[in-house]
Design a binder for these strands. Structure first.
Length: 928
RNA sequence: GCGGCUAUGGCGGAACUGGUAGACGCGUCAGACUUAGGAUCUGGUGCCUUCGGGCGUGGGGGUUCGACUCCCCCUAGCCGCACCA
């Protein structure tokens, strides 16, 4: 074989490993660059061709940055806690650690074959005690901190306690759960337990009774981003709402910072938009409504305080605290029934019945604070308990939900906004609420005549002056539920004394995951850790039996990579000052609301602790597209063992069956292989095309085992080599886009690799590179390539870079150029894409050191300068012919030359052109 | 319902700031070498054509000497959010 990739690739992979070519140290003489992939969960089925796409792109970029002289941090590790290994443990009794280790080994083998430039000495695994020690450590820090809205950051809880001791709670503006305020004297008289209960309202990691997403099939609660349309994202099991005592992280405290942080990072607009929606900031006002014949009041949040005069009724969520209290005896039964019904409704029912209008009247009346009007208070489940205050003022004239409700229950509707130059109309005739984003206020007392925006500001001023409300901001972002009733996860460093949770001392970390006899809940329904023997502290206090969720370990791993073997600290000051943040983060878009939110939150918190130098962890994020499968089909004549070829299938009654794409080449079925594929096809008969072949149908679908369209990288690497595989994955199309996999196309890239090799070798495959001076033509090709490659790299346009390599190789081949002065710089340029090939050629060129740290060739404009340009000449915008003209020729002369040109006469047809446009170095357009 | 993205040959895609539409590759056709080809090499290949040319970037309109690119309207597909007051 002329180009022996099997031997070459193995040789250099071994070289890199033995020489630690990609081991990284802090080096203050070089600028740093941190390239990170989202670390994988090592699943049992290994990699298919879609998985390495992002890793290849980031590896190319990391290698490219090394050639530019950067000190590149490019680590890899494993998000090793996860449900599949645990489910397998429940079924088979195999410890998840064993399964996980086995899967990691397989992953590593597959990754190694592709030739990545990872610094494996920095590998982390989230299930390793040396790693999760710091996950637990961060949890303790979260437990010991609260969020001060005045300073907009996390502060130690000890300082809060001091403030309580001296001044009580009155001066505190914190992000916390609502509770009664108290004086210093009251605080000092409280018992330890009472004090702890108060503090729990402030902690950034806190235990509380909350509505959770309970998934009975998985036996655990799930975070909001792990639930899709009422089903668990993993496994697709039904999810219920349930009140449970759970740990949560107060990510909502950081809502504003997480929103603002998006402005300073280079992420795709789409993913930033998803995060903005998830945070869901809305500005408005909280307004107090008195309740008739009660001393309690109802606080409502509204984004449209200007429409206060249009509020004709109020609605409370079924879970609202005051429902029971205000309901009159007359309505008691009805309300109780409704509340019960609403509470027990599953999330799925609620979602599917959104259009059904339900609700009951409580018998109570609220008092509209601007005009003193009494409005009925209803209970309805279209008002959510979790958003705002769980109560609304209904403005049916200008809100479609309130409108539908008012129509259904025959409640009054008032118009308070009218568009400029329009007359108000009778709401009784409306079929929907009236759009009121712009317009002028009517029927609104002191607001009449103002436009909407002024009225909003004016109303807020008014309620604040009267002490009946205040301008405020609401966020949709919920706190993250942080406990899971599972085995395979980080144990909480928490013990209980008298039912009150306390953190372990940092010196006691890591708190290692205990052994259990079974991986299921106990008979009493406690989580698996309750099965562990002696699951208590030295002093005998019981330890927490929940474990942390999947996102715990992945929220800070990118910092740990900076200093992964440090057993004194999470990471050293020195390391974080040098590496700072991730310059390029590569990974899937599906983590938009999960991992990418939690990691940002985690990073902001570590910043508040003074541990890091940047708030935002990921400067630039690139989301690689998915690779779709390309399925093939055979057509069985129904009820027979006969298979009819694609173009003849219409003549029969057929059934379409997926066939393994690995036994189909260019849509032609390998009949022999098909017979051997499954025993039932052994004696299959075939109705072939007239040319004697069996043609399969094809379609683009998701890549999955059941569709028999999975293509495995191992097979491709065996057949074509890792370099060809890397190149082809990048050649498929833009990195950001989803694209179908078609194994057929890899041949073209393989041919290119072989051609490139041949530039350096004679017909007998002997290395043959000349020391002769390159000529102008050759230098031009080289420098065009340098420019194109360098420009395309920065925009991650790797597919066009590879095209340029192909063009360049074809041209040099034509010129029979084998000159070192051209081929050597090209080798460096190609090396990020085809590193094994480049290393081999580099060595053949006489270099003793690895090519990995060789500097990229410098671009020289002089070599690509042209003195003439082949102008396309258009007539009325249509290109007709081309003319070679000097670049320094004045426009007037070009115009003259073109009009004299023989070929132009035909299009001029004797007329004088109206206008001739000459754009230097671009085009000539003659307007006739 | 709201928000975002996408649409170019038989296929993947290129054209970065308005300036030769279809680079590069696959497939396909023809030829060369060959006992053989699913190897290698050479050439053609958007569509239509009366061989003059005409038509072409999802559809319709507009701006411009010139539009895949900018503006307006529409269609289809994908993704996200979805009683968020």
């Amino acid at each position: 074989m002329e180009y022996n990739f099997r031997e070459i690739e193995k040789k250099w992979q071994k070289y890199w490993e033995e020489n630690k070519t990609f081991k990284t140290h802090i080096d203050h003489n070089k600028p740093k660059y941190y390239v990170l992939d989202m670390f994988p969960y090592p699943s049992g089925s290994g990699l298919h061709v879609g998985h390495p796409l992002g890793y290849i792109a980031s590896d190319i970029f990391a290698r490219f940055k090394r050639h530019q002289g950067y000190n590149v941090l490019h680590p890899m590790g494993y998000d090793a806690y996860g449900l599949p290994a645990e489910q397998y443990a429940i079924q088979t009794g195999t410890h998840p650690k064993v399964t996980t280790e086995k899967n990691i080994k397989r992953y590593r083998e597959q990754l190694d074959q592709i030739g990545f430039s990872f610094d494996w000495d920095r590998e982390v695994r989230t299930c390793d005690p040396e790693y999760y020690k710091w996950t637990q450590w961060t949890f303790i820090k979260l437990f010991k901190h609260w969020f001060n809205n005045k300073t907009n950051q996390a502060e130690p809880i000890d300082e809060l306690i001091k403030e309580f001791e001296n001044n009580g709670s009155q001066n505190i503006d914190a992000s916390c759960d609502p509770h009664e305020s108290f004086t210093a004297a009251e605080w000092n008289q409280m018992s330890e337990k009472e004090q702890q209960q108060i503090l729990m309202n402030y902690r950034l990691a806190y235990l509380s009774e909350t509505m959770v997403n309970w998934c009975p099939a998985l036996g655990t609660v799930l975070a909001n981003d792990e639930v899709k349309d009422g089903y668990s994202e993993r496994g697709g099991h039904p999810v219920e709402r349930k009140k449970m005592k759970q740990w949560s992280l107060r990510i909502s405290a950081y809502a504003q910072r997480l929103l603002e942080g998006l402005e300073k990072i280079n992420w795709s607009e789409s993913i930033k938009e998803v995060q903005r929606n998830w945070i869901g900031r809305s500005e408005g006002a909280t307004v107090y409504f008195k309740i008739k014949e009660h001393d309690k009041r109802i606080d409502v949040f509204t984004t449209r305080p200007d429409t206060l005069f249009g509020s004709t009724f109020m609605v409370l969520a079924p879970e609202h605290d005051l429902v029971e209290e205000i309901t009159t005896d007359e309505h008691k039964k009805e309300v109780e029934e409704y509340v019960n019904w609403a509470k027990n409704r599953s999330e799925r029912d609620r979602i599917s019945d959104v259009k059904k209008i339900t609700g009951v009247f409580t018998g109570a009346y609220g008092v509209n604070p601007v005009n003193g009007k009494e409005v009925p208070i209803w209970v309805a489940d279209y008002v959510l308990s979790g958003y705002g205050s769980g109560a609304i003022m209904a403005v049916p004239g200008h809100d479609s939900r309130d409108f539908a409700f008012a129509k259904h229950f025959n409640l009054p509707i008032i118009q308070v906004v009218v568009k400029k130059d329009e007359e108000p109309t009778d709401p009784a005739d409306w079929s929907d609420s009236y759009d009121s984003k712009e317009g002028v206020m009517i029927n609104s007392g002191f607001l009449n005549g103002m436009d909407v925006n002024d009225a909003i500001t004016e109303t807020i001023k008014f309620v604040e002056n009267k002490g009946i409300g205040y301008g405020t901001v609401n966020y949709r972002l919920r706190d993250a539920i942080f406990s899971r009733q599972r085995y395979w996860g980080e144990p909480f460093p928490i013990y209980y004394k008298d039912g009150v949770p306390y953190p372990l001392n940092e010196s006691e970390l890591p708190l290692e995951l205990p052994e259990v006899d079974k991986y299921q809940p106990t008979e009493e329904g406690d989580p698996p850790l309750a099965r562990a023997k002696n699951w208590k502290t030295k002093e005998g206090y019981p330890l927490e039996v929940n474990t942390m969720p999947g996102f715990a370990g992945s929220s800070g791993y990118y910092y740990r990579y900076m200093d992964p073997r440090n057993n004194q600290e999470y990471f050293s000051k020195e390391a974080v000052k040098y590496w700072r943040d991730v310059d390029l983060y590569m990974g899937g878009e599906e983590h938009a609301t999960g991992h990418l939110m939690y990691a940002r939150f985690w990073s902001h918190f570590l910043y508040d602790l003074g541990l890091t130098v940047k708030t935002e962890p990921f400067k630039r994020l690139i989301n690689q597209g998915k690779i779709q499968g390309r399925s093939n089909f055979v057509y069985r004549v129904v009820g027979t063992k006969k298979f009819v070829s694609y173009y003849k299938r219409k003549e029969y009654d057929t059934q379409r069956i997926h066939v393994d794409v690995n036994i189909v080449h260019n849509d032609e079925l390998d009949i022999q292989a098909f017979r051997e594929w499954m025993p039932e096809y052994q004696d299959a008969e075939f109705i072939l095309e007239d040319n004697g072949t069996y043609v399969c149908g094809a379609e683009v679908e998701k890549m999955s085992k059941s569709k028999h369209n999975v293509v495995n990288p191992d097979d491709l690497i065996e057949q074509y080599g890792a370099d060809t595989f890397r190149l082809y994955e990048m050649f498929l199309g833009p990195i950001y886009d989803d694209k179908p996999w078609d194994t057929q196309g890899i041949e073209g890239v393989f041919r290119f690799v072989k051609k490139f090799w041949r530039l350096f070798h004679d017909e007998n495959n002997n290395f043959n590179v000349s020391e002769a001076e390159p000529d102008k033509k050759e230098l031009k090709i080289l420098h065009q390539t340098i420019k194109k490659v360098t420009d395309d790299m920065e925009r991650f346009s790797f597919n066009t870079t590879i095209s340029q390599f192909m063009i360049c190789t074809n041209q040099l081949n034509e010129l029979k150029c084998n000159k070192r002065a051209i081929l050597e710089p090209l080798t460096v340029l190609l090396s990020p894409f085809a590193p094994h090939l480049a290393e081999e050629l580099w060595r053949l060129l006489g270099h003793e050191e690895t090519i990995a740290h060789a500097r990229d060739p410098e671009f020289n404009e002089e070599y690509i300068k042209e003195s003439t340009h082949e102008y396309p000449v258009s007539f009325n915008g249509k290109m007709r012919f081309k003319m070679e003209l000097p670049l320094d020729m004045p426009k007037e002369e070009i115009e003259k030359k073109v009009l004299e040109e023989e070929r132009a006469q035909k299009y001029l047809q004797g007329k004088t052109p109206k206008k001739v446009i000459v754009v230097p170095k671009k085009i000539i357009n003659v307007v006739v």
